[in-house]
Amino acid sequence: MEFGPHLILASLEGAVIAAVLAMTAMGLSIVFGIMRVVNVAHGEFFMLGAVIAWWVAHLLGGHPAVGFIAALVFAPLLVAIIAATADRLVLQRIDYDPDRTIVGTIGLLYIIQQVTLMTFGPEARPVEAPFNQRLAIPWFEFGENGFEIYWPWGLSITSYKLFIIVAAIAILTALWVLMTKTKIGLIMRATQQDSEMARAFGVPVKRVYAWVFGLGAGLAAMGAVLVVPVQQAHYLMGHDPLLLSFIVVIIGGLGSLPGTVIAAVLIGMSDGIISVFFSPTLAKILATLLVAMVLVFRPQGLMGKLRS
């Protein structure tokens, strides 16, 4: 394929990855920012979202859109409840101690994976997209006949992939409104800045933490529901989203929600675009080192404030 169309294609693919990543990472960013804990089980909440989406779509049957919409509502809700319960049962009892949270959430990760393996099974299971047309994209060239438009081989995207991008933007906007314009957001931000002070002002900090943990997991699950018609639900699928969102949150700057979005877009897009220029595995190596170098030279992340 010529360079121009190739770049466009890689960018579009990168944008889809970035959209899902932004949602998943936003979930982790909120938890990280407000509660200051590393949730190793975050990827498993993503996986649970995809698996529940399959169950819902499978049970409902009928037109794929019915199952998909139901999944978009139920999967994040269920996952949020599971996460909030885990917060109550485990994290609250260990008082969000950083080290113990790591071991505890690794334990949760094992439990969730094993239960999924026993109930859902080891196969990768597809969820049908509500709509999925292949959209060919035209390209232009200045040939002998001057400016020409043509349809390059392979340059296309599907309508569903475009929908993922749009849906992610809509959901993130809604989240932004929630965080900045509502009382819930105010309480969350107050808890983030100084949980002691918030408690003094009558904020039920414990309950806020449970909600935040649920919200974070729900966002990951929602990202998974969006992506599951493209990928498939599989009990080990949480691994990569965990690592990537973890990276995104740190690169963006701890606790900075705009930073998280910017970093997600950067990492998602660079993954696609670097692959245009290098052989695939070499591209991955370079993209990985690039991320490391960003932090080496800007340890506080892109949008983070340097703490003294």
Binding site: G104, G107, I112, Q114
Partner: peptide, 9 residues
């Protein structure tokens, strides 16, 4: 893995 997970928790 279920037992291992529970033990860790």
């Amino acid at each position: 893995m279920l037992i291992a997970g529970l033990a860790l928790v």
